[in-house]
């Protein structure tokens, strides 16, 4: 099988506070992604692009269908896997760069990035984190500070450094370049290219057309799976 295969994925939210209002998001979504392939999800805002990434990461529950992730010789269905199995996938197989950094109080930018490497000694993790921050042009004077007070672009670069540092077979990118200038957009394109050559499967939501064209092997318009009004 491919590293990632979705079939029949259906998702709706039920808002009990509004009398059980049902908000359908996706219906019968299916796609697969190869090793080294970058799939970019397209469609207007509200079509469910970010929701698809959250479903793959196990952040949203899947109502129907299967989200199969290859883990070595085994396959895990994120739609039905127990929490421990999903956490294990997140630690080893699936990386996810969210749109916004969730800053932890008191933790320095360097440690925010280094913490993503759980399987190496702390000093080595810090060295590699420093190299990644440098690559994203985060000024060294900021590394020892907690990112909560950073600008939007600086936070996004810390978030990208954190998400792209560890080796993962699948990387999910949600608007990775939204707050970045041209130079830093180019860094993202470079790193995504490197990861693809290493055989990493990437699923991304990118609005910037030049970035999209530079990284996408396949584009999937999710409008045809969207059921929202």
């Amino acid at each position: 099988m491919q590293p990632l295969e979705l079939s029949g994925v259906t998702k709706a939210f039920t808002v009990h506070l509004q009398g059980g209002l049902r908000l359908p998001v996706l219906h019968d979504l299916a796609f697969a992604a190869r090793a080294g392939e970058c799939v970019v999800l397209t469609g207007p805002s509200g079509a469910g692009k970010s929701s698809i990434l959250k479903l793959i990461y196990g952040n949203y529950r899947c109502d129907e269908g299967a989200i199969l992730v290859r883990d070595g010789d085994t396959t895990v269905d994120v739609a039905t896997a127990p929490p421990r199995r999903i956490l294990s996938l997140r630690r080893r197989v699936i990386g996810y760069v969210t749109q916004f950094l969730r800053a932890v109080p008191r933790v320095s930018a360097l440690d925010v990035v280094a913490e993503a490497l759980t399987d190496v000694p702390r000093e080595i993790a810090r060295d590699r984190a420093a190299a990644m921050l440098a690559r994203f042009n985060v000024p060294e004077r900021l590394w020892s500070l907690p990112p909560a007070t950073f600008s939007g672009g600086e936070q996004q670069r810390v978030n990208l450094a954190r998400g792209l540092l560890p080796d993962r077979a699948i990387v999910l990118l949600d608007e990775p370049t939204a707050s970045l200038d041209a130079a830093n957009r180019a860094v993202v394109v470079d790193i995504v290219g490197e990861r693809k050559r290493q055989g990493v499967t990437i699923v991304a939501v990118v609005h910037d057309e030049s970035v999209r064209d530079a990284i996408a092997d396949t584009q999937i318009d999710v409008t045809r799976f969207a059921t929202a009004a």
Binding site: H16, R61, P83, L87
Partner: peptide
């Protein structure tokens, strides 16, 4: 019950939705 981020970001039960909101 479940993954913390899943329950807080996609709460299913009316009471959990009330707590989160």
């Amino acid at each position: 019950a479940g993954l913390t981020d899943q329950v807080l970001d996609d709460p299913r039960e009316p009471y959990t939705q009330l707590l989160v909101s």
